[in-house]
Design a protein around this nucleic acid. Structure first.
Lengths: 344, 344
DNA sequence: GGCCGCATTGTGACCGGTAACAATCCTGGC
DNA sequence: GCCAGGATTGTTACCGGTCACAATGCGGCC
């Protein structure tokens, strides 16, 4: 029972040591479960710890040992479903390993911002997890101090400089390939693609998979529609696509985009999936409940976050610079928004 | 230009001091912008800092000064729109103030989990922001060590023990009152309410506002439907409500719930808003684009997060235990999902 | 009984900063 | 030319832990 009443300094290991009649080092040994402490002593120390309400200062621990039980996630956005889920996965895994997790958002991709963010993050942290699905993230991955352990959550694995780090990924290329194949197999002559902003200079994995599927099927490859992340971007894209009667199937870079596209088609008087089929990406929770419910590709983002952490954890613990990579398998979820074209 | 090549220890202020030919304390003065440093010296030191690529260790700073430029957000979930937006707001404000932000999620509301989380968080941090919209958050707010500065993001302000902390809030009661009033003014005889899990033992602010509006209008107060957070919960609630022909208007605790409710009504053959009007809460980005688009209450969550941080920041800087409170004004956004009842 | 060796425990330095106070440098006033 | 006193700068301790190594205790063996 601690009934001190008013604010006072947290007790340190020396306070505990005095209370238990041992040296501070013995206390240190006890809190670290060092084997060579007589159990009687250990018990005495533990009692003192209990009574004083001692808690080891994470700050001092970090300073003295160099080890820093914390990771921070660098990301462009915390509100989009995919990003938020990765973050959730990281946090979950980190919590289990008794790591603290920090978060730092990249407001833009310009070098100034990115390097400032990377520096601030690297300053106080054991390791970094960079969500590099977008330009800002990719820039951050490249800008990260080579001395701090970094794991990238990337779209396209690559051995080249910006990605010369351990990474985790989902096979977006294959996912896009399958989603496109699904639409083609329903009888659509071609599939349009509304892309999310890409992180790489080359075509993104999703774009590549979509294109490959069209080519393999001998279908025409329409021009990619480049848009932003949110439903309003999808709406803008959908408004344009709605004017083209040749458009019968649209694949979207994420579910919000798809919802915007569906809305625009709806307002233009084109029914989904009657006139146009729409397929999303990510399987956000609400995607199953909108009308028409959205055919989409489910990606295990929180699993991705967990493995990103595990990978980083291993890196920090063993300091072995192995490049272990992990991939999750995407899954196509067919719902109401995709169907055979009306006039095959 | 630093072309060292391989990993080496970050330079400390003593390294800088040696390089600049001054004492380490002078370096400390320079990096802290202490006025009494001759400008020639200051310049010399700055040059050394530049050359060595010195960066001040946040860890050492925290340990030595006691001040800890970091806050952590305790929350039940990072993926729901409201929570994610609050987090985003906190991060933004924190970044501007050069604070680090941590995040720790409360997996359940049981005392074990909560106190562990609170302890871990309080361990290494300057201040805490607790999102206390749900039972877990409320418990955390109550369990937080009285010594660490805490700001609550709460639903219902209260002077009572669990909330005896500075807080920020949105006027959810008024928002619910207005949303309910909107439906009544359209001609609905009563309004059903699908609630999110409440944080307080008493009725939540949203519930209270809804009830008040009904009573003020002399309308019947149906039993509250208690559900979870996600669209599938809304779907479950909607399925039940669809069987009751008296139900013509439904207010939901958040937009995902509302989307689930709309879906269930749709599947039951009841049209929205023809047969039943549905109103959500929070104005998630996609809510404007689903069909029918959702009437909802817009809440400035990121603004809420920003003021939570600002409040905490003030607390940390001045250590004045003032209870400053901030409120944001909710705004009703009328869209397609609400309309006059078919048979008035 | 004396000595050796392992099990325990203690000592002092150090991590990279800040805080408080002492020391030295200048400058103006007489 | 000398001295007081503010402007600069240096010295030493300390934050709360860990680390490396020294010191002590104890049991077994000859």
């Amino acid at each position: 029972m601690n009934v001190t009443g008013h604010t006072r300094r947290q007790p340190s290991i020396r306070d505990v040591a005095t209370a238990a009649g041992v040296s501070h080092q013995t206390v240190s040994r006890v809190i670290n479960n060092h084997p060579s402490v007589k159990s009687a002593t250990r018990e005495r120390v533990n009692r003192a710890i209990e009574e004083l309400g001692f808690r080891r200062s994470a700050t001092a621990l970090a300073l003295a040992s160099g080890r820093n039980r914390s990771v921070t996630v660098l990301t462009a956005n915390t509100t989009h479903h995919g990003y938020a889920s990765v973050l959730q996965g990281v946090e979950e895994a980190a919590r289990k390993a008794a790591y603290a997790v920090g978060i730092s958002v990249l407001e833009s991709a310009d070098e100034q911002t990115v390097s400032a963010a990377v520096q601030r993050a690297g300053d106080s942290v054991g390791g970094l997890i960079v969500i590099a699905y977008d330009p800002a993230g990719v820039a951050a991955l490249a800008a990260a101090d080579p001395d701090v352990p970094v794991v990238g959550v990337v779209e396209t694995p690559s051995q080249e400089p910006p990605h010369d780090r351990p990474w985790v990924w989902t096979d977006d290329r294959r996912a896009a390939y399958e989603a496109t194949g699904h639409l083609l197999s329903l009888g659509h002559r071609s599939v349009h693609y509304v892309a999310i902003p890409s992180g790489t200079h080359r075509v993104s994995a999703r774009t590549a998979g979509w294109q490959q599927a069209l080519e393999d099927a001998g279908a025409a490859v329409p021009e990619v529609v480049h848009e932003g992340w949110g439903p309003q971007s999808g709406y803008a894209a959908g408004s344009r696509l709605a004017r083209d009667p040749d458009v019968t199937a649209v694949l979207c870079g994420n579910d919000d985009l798809a919802i915007g596209v569906m809305r625009a088609l709806h307002e233009a008087g084109r029914s989904v999936p009657g006139d146009v089929s729409v397929v999303g990406f990510d399987d956000a929770p609400h995607s199953a409940f909108v009308t028409p419910s959205l055919t989409t590709v489910r990606l295990d983002f929180s699993g991705l976050g967990r493995s990103a952490f595990d990978l980083l954890h291993g890196l920090l613990a063993t300091s072995t610079p192995v490049q272990y990579h992990s991939a999750a398998v995407p899954e196509l979820v067919v719902r109401e928004s995709s169907a055979p074209p009306r006039h095959p």
